[in-house]
Amino acid sequence: MHWDLSRFTELEGKLADKSFKGITSIVVVQGDKLVYEAYFNGGNPDQLNDIRSASKSVTALLVGAAIDRGLIPKVQTPIYGYFSDKQPWQHPDPRKQAITLEDLLTMSSQWECDDENQFSGGNEERMYVTEDWLQFALDLPIKGYAPWMSKPKDSPYGRAFSYCTAGAFVAGAVVERATHKPLADFAAEALEHPLGITQVKWNRSPLGIGMGGGGTRYRSRDLAKLGQLALDGGRWQGQQVISPSWIQAMLTPRAQAREDADYGYLWWRFRFPLKGVEQPTWAMGGNGGNYVFVVPSQKLVAVITSTAYNHSYAHPQSQGIFRDYILKAMP
């Protein structure tokens, strides 16, 4: 059985005639074999792609690495204990003290924080215009539930999902506090160097805290390695880089993000049809339509990088390429 490479030729036609816009690279790996790799619109193999929020999924891997090393006791560890130097924080509440790392990783903390609501006090755009992002997040009030909103007890998996970049940023800050290292340094040591990833760029907040919430830059092939690591239970070329128990915990649905998507620990779970059968597909996803798709049942990893930032077509376009071209080209 062979891949139907004519699908990729057809896709290249769509990219050439601008039916699809802003796509810079597509890399497809099955098993450990490279099936397809191509660059478009100025992309190239050494391009450090700004994958925006897809880097949140890397933060989840780093939390696992810190837990593996015993530097963070467990994923249910309350977070406020790491930041006693930031006291007093606004809106003190016992429910805030109870917020755990797991709440941040599942986007279901009780903070009033929703990036998809411009009126939300915790919206990421409000954080970016302040100097102290950590204080901004720790000061957030407890959210209320309007009558039309789902409360945790009435939600699938018992968690009410609300997309919150500030939470992912704080998760990265916990890793820094626990490891006593800048996030980029711990990432290099615990994750990137074992995978042979040498070219990477991490962002930092105005006060110098590693940005675990987005904007890390990787080469396309290195993104594929991150997908492979998730696919292979934390192993890379025979070496256990992240524990299998963490990968399994990370890739377990823990909240319903949308009608068509669940959420693990900062990883999305979609369902895409393959030959008429829905396949659970885990994904790192970010603004602009940047994705690393992982289909465990098919041992498939597909990377799509794109610069269609802040365009409404960006996510549907990348998901469509994956669904209608990559999956349909499969043997």
Score class of each variant (00 low, 15 high):
M127Y: 02
T130G: 05
I26P: 02
D139Y: 14
Q237R: 14
P92Q: 12
I209T: 13
P88Y: 07
V129Q: 10
K18E: 15
I99A: 02
S318F: 02
S155C: 10
L327V: 05
Q90Y: 10
G210W: 03
P182E: 13
D50M: 01
A166W: 03
G210R: 00
A178S: 08
V241F: 12
A283H: 02
Q110I: 13
I23P: 08
V292I: 08
E124Y: 05
V294F: 00
T100R: 04
F270I: 07
A283F: 00
K275G: 13
Q199L: 12
G215K: 02
G122H: 04
A184Q: 13
Q319T: 02
I242F: 06
G213V: 00
G289C: 08
D114R: 03
C164G: 05
D132C: 03
S109R: 00
G289D: 15
E116Q: 06
G122N: 05
A160L: 05
E12G: 05
A54E: 14
P316Q: 09
W268H: 03
T106H: 02
P206W: 03
I99F: 03
P88W: 08
Q237K: 15
L207M: 14
A308F: 04
Q237C: 11
A308P: 13
I142C: 05
Y313D: 15
N49Q: 13
V29I: 11
K151L: 14
G70M: 11
P280F: 07
S306H: 04
V174Y: 01
G238C: 08
G227N: 05
K225M: 03
L191E: 01
P156E: 10
F293H: 02
D262A: 01
V301T: 07
L62S: 02
M284F: 13
Y291S: 07
V170Y: 02
L300W: 06
L15G: 08
I72Y: 04
D232A: 11
M1G: 13
G31C: 06
E259L: 09
W111H: 11
L105A: 00
Q110S: 12
K33M: 14
R177P: 14
S25K: 02
A255P: 15
I209N: 08
T77H: 07
G286L: 01
W89R: 12
Y218P: 03
G233C: 10
Q97P: 09
K86T: 12
P280V: 10
H315R: 01
Y39G: 12
G81D: 14
F161G: 01
S25Q: 07
P141N: 07
V301F: 01
S162C: 06
K201W: 01
G121K: 14
V35H: 10
H2N: 14
A230S: 12
K96S: 09
M149I: 13
R258E: 15
C164E: 06
G22Q: 09
W268S: 01
F40Q: 12
G144R: 04
W133M: 03
S312I: 06
V241T: 11
H311Y: 13
A168N: 03
F161P: 12
P88T: 13
Q319S: 03
G13I: 12
G167P: 10
A187L: 05
A184P: 14
Q97I: 10
V295P: 00
K201V: 02
D260R: 00
Q317S: 08
A98H: 07
P88N: 08
D46K: 13
I247D: 11
R126T: 03
P147E: 15
